[in-house]
Every structure is written in C-alpha cells, then in structure tokens.
Simulated scan of single mutants.
Amino acid sequence: MSTLYPVHLAGEELWLLPEKALYWPAQQALLIADVHFGKAAAYRSLGQPVPQGTTASNIAMLDRLLSQHPCRQLIFLGDFLHGPGSHSPGTLNALAQWRARHADLPMTLIRGNHDKRAGDPPAALNIRVVAEPMLLGPFALQHEPIPHHERHVLAGHVHPVYRLHGKGRQSLRLACFSVGERVSLMPAFGAFTGGYPIKRDDNCRIFVIGDNEIWPVS
C-alpha cells in the first residue's frame, strides 16, 4: 500500500498521494493534472519509437485511486488529451470502457493548453469541460500556475520534478509536489509526460515521490 502525506493549505487538509494525485477529503474530490492521454499514440503516428501501454497504465492507476478513496467528483487540472493525434480508436475505446465503469461519478476537466489543441473529450465520455479558474472552497483550480487575486491556486502544467543529490555525482530526479504561499503545483499524472526541474526556496515546500511514498525535502 502507498502512503499518503497530509498537508494543511488555506484552512483545508489535502492529501498528497504518491500516485501523483491529490485527494481533498472534505470535498471527497480527487484531483489529477496532466494525464496527456494518447501522447504515446500521437508520437507513434509520427513514426517515433515510444512505449505502448501508457493509456492502460494510466487508467489502471485511476481505477486504483477511485477504489481507495471515496469520491464525489474527479477533477482534471488540464491536458486530458495530448493532441489531435490522441483521438485514435484504441485510446478513445479504452477511455470509453473506463468511463462506463464509473458512469455515475461526476468528472470535470479544466481546459489546459493541450486540450485547446486536442479538442474537448468526446461528448460520450460525459466529462464537463470548463475554463480556468474553477473556484471551489478556498482554492482556484487551474491548469496554468498563475496567482489568483483571492484564492490559493492548485495547478498543473509545469510537470515539476526535483533532483536529490547524494555523495559525489550521485543524484536522483523525482516527480514532486511544490506547495507555495499562493500557488501549489501538482506533478504530471501521465506515465509518459517528462518533467521540468524546479528549485526549492523559502516560499515553497517540496515533496518528492519515491517508493510509493511522499518525502518532504528538508
């Protein structure tokens, strides 16, 4: 079993999950950023030798999270589909089967930059699509990590990773959460997404993900 890490933010308790997701117990909401469904398929359509099975692994992880945590809503913080090439029959059929298993669960997508290129998910998936910000409680749920004038921002887009340094030249690059004073970043959920290195400073806390656990960086 993985180990969650509770943090308190804007008067609410949030759980950082090592599956690269966030759970908000008071709202029974599961938050996911940057799945990029169909990215590998889009690259393969261009003749690039990239892994197969990423959509299946992402869906399996979502199923696992939904079985572990009582959810009244699933919210995607942008970049549900990667691009126009993501509308392959294999990707869309897999998503349709997954959605059918959770037909009664309300799902919302906050449109991100890749969603604008890929187009909204097919209507048959029954996913409500909204523009950012989506205001919920004390938070502004967004794709872009742009400060909000009133609320704490929970965002994706950056795909944050942090490099831990050991002895000599040893180092380890890990996906992470960045919890700031006004803006907090979620890691990319997708299995084939890459990452952007970020640095720790006095205005944010870094929580890296490894061995199915969350580790605060001191």
Rank of each mutant, 00 (worst) to 15 (best):
V183D: 00
N113P: 00
E12Y: 03
H159K: 09
A188D: 04
G11K: 02
I59F: 00
Q170N: 15
V153Y: 02
L92I: 15
V153W: 01
A175K: 09
G194H: 08
L95A: 14
N93R: 14
G11H: 02
H8G: 07
T55I: 15
G168N: 13
Q48N: 12
P197V: 07
A96Q: 15
H36N: 06
G190H: 02
E19H: 12
A29I: 03
P89N: 09
L125S: 08
G83M: 05
P187A: 14
R205L: 03
V153D: 07
V153A: 09
L22R: 05
D120R: 06
Y23W: 11
A10M: 02
G53R: 09
V130Y: 02
I198F: 07
G119Y: 09
H152Y: 07
L109I: 04
A26R: 13
P187W: 15
H87E: 14
T3W: 15
T55E: 13
P106W: 09
R117W: 12
A175R: 10
R128C: 13
F139E: 05
R99T: 09
Y196N: 15
P49F: 05
C204S: 10
K116N: 12
M107D: 00
V129A: 03
G194Y: 11
S88W: 10
S57T: 09
I146S: 02
P18V: 06
D211P: 04
P138T: 06
L31H: 07
V50I: 10
G112N: 03
T193W: 06
A41Q: 05
R173K: 15
T3V: 15
D34V: 01
P70T: 09
A118S: 12
F139R: 04
W215P: 00
R72V: 01
Y23R: 03
Q68T: 14
V158L: 10
Y162Q: 13
P49V: 05
V35D: 00
S171I: 04
K20G: 01
F192R: 07
M107Q: 12
E19C: 06
P133T: 06
D79W: 05
Y5R: 02
S178M: 10
F80E: 04
R44T: 08
